Structure formats: structure tokens, C-alpha cells
Simulated assay, not measured.
Amino acid sequence: MDEQTRLELEAAAFRQLVQHLRERTDVQNIDLMNLAGFCRNCLSKWYKAAAEEKGMSMDYEEAREIVYGMPYEEWKKCYQTEATAEQKAKYDAVQAQSAH
């Protein structure tokens, strides 16, 4: 596979992942962190870092809006729920394990 095709396929897969996460507003970031070790905010940080590697200026909120499909504060108001005690405990346990 040539480099351009690889880049195009990776970009298409990323776009599909972002679209899927935009549609699955029922899946909270804490759930993603607990199961996969990353969340929408992580994707936003990676996007911002990639832009900066290319010499582009992008702030975190701009990157979040690209990933969330709307300003983050709006997404929180519409879709974010309070994490349960169980979610928080699992998050703490996962974070403690990954620190080792």
C-alpha cells in the first residue's frame, strides 16, 4: 500500500470514529476511559497535537469542537451525566493500574 492511500484510509477511519462518538452521546467519557483508556477529550488533545506538529495554531477548545461536533460546554449541557460511584471507583482503579 502506498503512503497516500494509507493516509487516506487512516483519515477515513478517524472520521468514522468521530462520527460514531458523536452519534453515541449515551456513552460517557468516563465509560470510554474505563474500557479503552481514552475518551473524546484525548482525541481532541491528539488532534491539537497533530495540528501543532504541522505548524498550525489550534487551541484545545477548537479541537474539542471538531471532535464533539459542537462546543464542549454545549455537549456537556445536552449529554453529560453525573458519573456514578461505580464509574468513579472503576476509573480510580484503572488509573492506579496504569500508573504502575
Rank of each mutant, 00 (worst) to 15 (best):
W75R: 03
L43Q: 05
L35R: 13
R22N: 09
E23C: 07
Q97F: 03
W75S: 05
L9D: 08
E86A: 13
L32F: 04
A96D: 02
Q16C: 10
A50C: 08
L7M: 11
R6Y: 14
A13W: 09
A93D: 13
F38S: 02
E65N: 13
E10I: 09
V67Q: 10
Q80I: 01
R24H: 12
Q80G: 01
V18R: 08
Q4E: 15
V67Y: 04
M58P: 04
G55K: 03
E73S: 15
T25D: 13
L32C: 05
Q4C: 09
V94R: 05
E74Y: 11
D2Q: 11
G69P: 12
M70H: 07
M70W: 08
A49S: 06
G55P: 03
A49T: 08
I66Y: 14
K54P: 05
K77Q: 10
T81Y: 00
L35M: 10
R22P: 07
W46G: 03
R40H: 01
D31H: 06
K76R: 11
M33P: 01
Q80P: 00
Y60H: 15
N41S: 13
E73T: 08
V27T: 06
T81D: 01
A85N: 14
M58S: 05
A49D: 15
N34E: 02
G37A: 01
A93N: 05
C78N: 15
Y68G: 08
A85G: 07
A96F: 00
M56A: 12
A51N: 07
N34L: 02
Y79H: 11
F38H: 02
E82I: 06
R22A: 07
A36R: 12
Q95S: 06
S57Y: 12
K54L: 15
G69A: 11
D59Y: 10
T81I: 06
Y60G: 06
E3K: 15
T25E: 10
E8L: 08
G37C: 02
Y72V: 12
Q28M: 02
K90F: 09
W75I: 05
A12Q: 09
L17P: 04
C78V: 13
T5Y: 11
C39Y: 01
A96I: 00
I66F: 14
Q19Y: 07
K48C: 13
E52R: 12
H20C: 13
A36E: 09
R40C: 01
M33D: 15
D92R: 11
I30S: 00
A49M: 12
L17G: 02
V18E: 05
F38M: 03
R64A: 10
G69F: 08
R22M: 07
V27K: 04
Q19K: 14
E10K: 13
A93E: 13
A12W: 03
A83D: 10
Q87P: 04
G37D: 00
E82V: 11
A50K: 08
K76D: 05
E82H: 04
M56N: 07
Y47V: 11
A49C: 06
K76C: 10
A96L: 02
N34A: 02
L9S: 08
R40Q: 03
F38V: 03
A85W: 14
Q97Y: 01
D26C: 02
V94Q: 07
S57N: 12
V18S: 05
G69V: 10
D2H: 12
L17R: 04
E53Y: 09
E3P: 07
T84K: 02
L9C: 06
L32A: 03
D59G: 06
L35K: 09
Y47F: 14
L21P: 02
E10C: 14
Y72N: 13
